[in-house]
Design a protein around this nucleic acid. Sequence first.
DNA 1: GGATAAGCGAGACGGTACGTCTCGTCTTTTG
DNA 2: CAAAAGACGAGACGTACCGTCTCGCTTATCC
Lengths: 201, 201, 201, 201
Amino acid sequence: MIICMSEIGVRRRPGGRSARVRQSVLDATLAVLAEDGVDALTVAAVAARAGVHETSIRRRWRTRANLICDALLSCSAQQLPIPDTGSLREDLTAFATEAAAYDATPLGRALLHATVMPTADDALAKAREDFWRRRREPAKVMIWRAVARGEIPATTATQLVLEAIVAPLHFRTLVTHDRLDERLPREIVDLVLNGILEPQP
Amino acid sequence: MIICMSEIGVRRRPGGRSARVRQSVLDATLAVLAEDGVDALTVAAVAARAGVHETSIRRRWRTRANLICDALLSCSAQQLPIPDTGSLREDLTAFATEAAAYDATPLGRALLHATVMPTADDALAKAREDFWRRRREPAKVMIWRAVARGEIPATTATQLVLEAIVAPLHFRTLVTHDRLDERLPREIVDLVLNGILEPQP
Amino acid sequence: MIICMSEIGVRRRPGGRSARVRQSVLDATLAVLAEDGVDALTVAAVAARAGVHETSIRRRWRTRANLICDALLSCSAQQLPIPDTGSLREDLTAFATEAAAYDATPLGRALLHATVMPTADDALAKAREDFWRRRREPAKVMIWRAVARGEIPATTATQLVLEAIVAPLHFRTLVTHDRLDERLPREIVDLVLNGILEPQP
Amino acid sequence: MIICMSEIGVRRRPGGRSARVRQSVLDATLAVLAEDGVDALTVAAVAARAGVHETSIRRRWRTRANLICDALLSCSAQQLPIPDTGSLREDLTAFATEAAAYDATPLGRALLHATVMPTADDALAKAREDFWRRRREPAKVMIWRAVARGEIPATTATQLVLEAIVAPLHFRTLVTHDRLDERLPREIVDLVLNGILEPQP
DNA sequence: GGATAAGCGAGACGGTACGTCTCGTCTTTTG
DNA sequence: CAAAAGACGAGACGTACCGTCTCGCTTATCC
């Protein structure tokens, strides 16, 4: 599978029924994903919801995985807003709060599940990595600004810091449904900024 | 589904064929899980591997989900060893290293995938939470020891600290297949212990 | 299967629990047969109804077919009453009416169905033939009496006459659910007694 | 099940794969019916014999009963030949002889069994009635011709006469496996034509 | 602006897995 | 130690989905 997913059916016949069908199918996919979850997402359900014949979907996306993957990418563009408060702590806290809130929405949860499914499909795997990369990269600017402000050293591992903040949130959403309240983001950010060691005198 | 999974078939006829069948099926389930992954785990495959008739599995576990769930719980006992080096940093680093190594094994990865699968089944959801709780609780002793040694304040959020350490590892294993090398655990532990802020003069 | 069905469990302990169990199972079998029909008759259902463990039934009757067959024979004794009005026409009409009425009862219909089921089991086949023989033989006396009265020739084929009368009734019950009303028996008897040819002058 | 069985898949694409599959499945059904009997008829067996995937059969006919029923109807067209000898006695004798011969064939016996199976399925019940109606109706012409020739009164109950002739044959085939030889048809016809009463002087 | 090629509607089919229901055998457990 | 209770082997049934294929027909694009 060498096709680039997010391009399927995009080029040819850009204006007209094709494009209309494509869009309504992707919308329907996300809608079903949000409502019923990823394992209840069936091609037939998407077709019905999109008002499109099942065959048309199968013809274009070939497999269920491709469909999900394309839908994923199609919405990975709409990124979370990156706060800019002038303080790293406030930036990260706001960011973490947004992430937690998104994980609490049906679509957010469904996307999370979708990107975590085991898969043998390389294209899908790649699409998932892209999905997260597109989410992560813009957020790095918060770190860079803090470095520029001298809050943190220039050697700070940007990606790792971001992951240390969002991974626990996603993890709680996925498995342990422990407390995922409004105080949690700040606690995590405090942890990452200050560490837990007793301040050395 | 009110039955407690991990008890299925345990009580009655504890000595004999029943117990033998149960054990071989659970073993086979984990084996298949490790080799082929969770979505390739088919009841027929487990039955074949266990040398047991498919019907016997379906009769006792009813659904595929129950089977996976029971297998999960059956192996959640065998916990990771909890290091005790006298230093929190070394303890956590060793622990994180073990966790990363386990995530790199087929079974580890499969268990991870199995516990993040979306599910409508309450029993399964509960089993997964139990699975992680049984993994997490014993690890808390590392924190307690550090508190006793005066390394960290008694108010430290034990669960959160552990999650901040393992969640990024699991997250990389699940989605972004970014670097998951031998240096990563130490980096995360440093992050959690020291924070990233410039030391205040 | 060489065992003679209708003897199973009869000899030993004629007054004890065995006999009690046997009777309640056979009763339950007939009851289920009457209520749900032969193809819905399941060993489990009979066991439940008889208040007996399924295994006990299986041990004694071995197969479902044997059970049905034994139940059948156990009730083939209770024959239809043979009328004796002094007139062959009235005797046969009454007999046919009874037969039609019995076919209209749930048990009658179920027995009919049970005896026409295809089977590979010789014992069952034989039991079914016995069932019908026991029903038919006593009825022949009607013919004999008519011969004695000089109503019909001594050469009359007794069995064939009886079959010509009851077979159409059973046939309508089994397949064509055409008219099976109170006038039918008499019409059939008229047919058999007088024939349909125009009386020769 | 509101669908009319015998129409399933008949209309659309009359010459394509569908029709080919349909035909081979029905043929296979009748073949299996003839060879192994109705209760040994398994969907898998039919599928194997028809060189068609089991799922295709289940999809179109849904249940085993429907399949049998459709096969039944599909062959109810090929009726027995209706003799026309100029004599009612000879016509009926020939007809009865044919019927007896057909009951002696595997397919004949299987069809007979199939049509007397108890069923909760209305469509199947109706199909069976249709099957027999289609067999019976054309035969009535023998009676009508005899009426026209003045052999029998115009008031003769055509259906009843035919049933009186074939029912005993079918009955013997189904249950009592008594004599079903070449003399029987004639004896039955004699019975029905002349009656058994001593001729009145 | 009409020919042409792409895409869509419709419906089967092959294939895999799931879960249910029997029947009949076998093995533990228990009285 | 024999009967009762229950698990197991075997196999059919029916359901749901996935992915492929073939026809017609509609519609967008291009000459």
